[in-house]
Design a protein around this nucleic acid. Structure first.
Lengths: 123, 123
DNA sequence: GTAGGAGCTGACACCCGTGTCAGGTTCAAG
DNA sequence: CTTGAACCTGACACGGGTGTCAGCTCCTAC
């Protein structure tokens, strides 16, 4: 498929898809005329990329991580280097701390929301 | 206390503390010479502000939210307007979605980390 | 009174994924 | 062949919290 369809199917802008390619996160064949031609599994990959961005990983780390992931085609999935594994473990811990903070903040919001739903405020 | 101590006690830079004041998130008395003088409870407030920033709220929304929160002094805590409550509920839902995404990404990381810890890779 | 650490304001830069525009090329349908 | 939608590259801008610097003033201890 071409970039327009991929953008539509993933909900990611064409701009971002080109950026992902530039960062080495996503590859594409080219037509003789130079237009990008994506494999079917690019869809899943783009979704993953978005998730990892949302998790706070930077493109550089995602670029290292992606080749080590089991793709939908069940390919060989090379094993990560110890160095990368250590970095990923650090990212995971960071994510855990982030989640804890988010849940805490959510509780704070809930308290304000809850207080407003009581007729005359808490006694 | 003055700004240096507050920065030291909260781990937040002086630059950021001044920014919080500019955004209406944090107030301070002034000495005759114009230097900021903070109440003791500014410490808790700064911590909260950081949490809310980490949760993805923008300073404008935090500025609306803070006056509605029960402070450590157990003050009056005015009730949020229905409009603000609706916005906060939206933020809470966004946080929930973010958490779900983070946990998902964490699992993805764990899979790669786990695969690397197996002697010859998965069968 | 004076030295020097601490504080003040204002301004500029950064990150980095994304939006957007300009100007040109390619592709597919008529 | 022509037309128009889709695609290409390159460049500039943004958001928004934070770092950093310059140049000055304040406060405290001696």
């Amino acid at each position: 498929m071409r970039i327009g369809e991929l953008a539509r199917r993933t909900g990611v802008s064409e701009r971002s898809l080109r950026y992902y390619e530039q960062q080495g996160l996503l590859s594409a064949e080219r037509t003789p005329g130079g237009q990008r031609e994506y494999h079917e599994r690019a869809v899943d990959r783009v979704v993953r990329i978005q998730e990892l961005f949302a998790a706070g990983l930077h493109s550089k780390k995602i670029a290292q991580l992606l080749p080590c992931m089991r793709d939908t085609d069940g390919g060989p999935s090379p094993v990560a280097t110890p160095r990368l594994v250590a970095e990923l473990a650090a990212e995971r811990d960071r994510i855990d701390r982030t989640v804890a903070g988010l849940l805490n903040s959510r509780d704070v919001l809930d308290e304000v929301i809850g207080a407003a739903s009581e007729p005359t405020g808490p006694r």
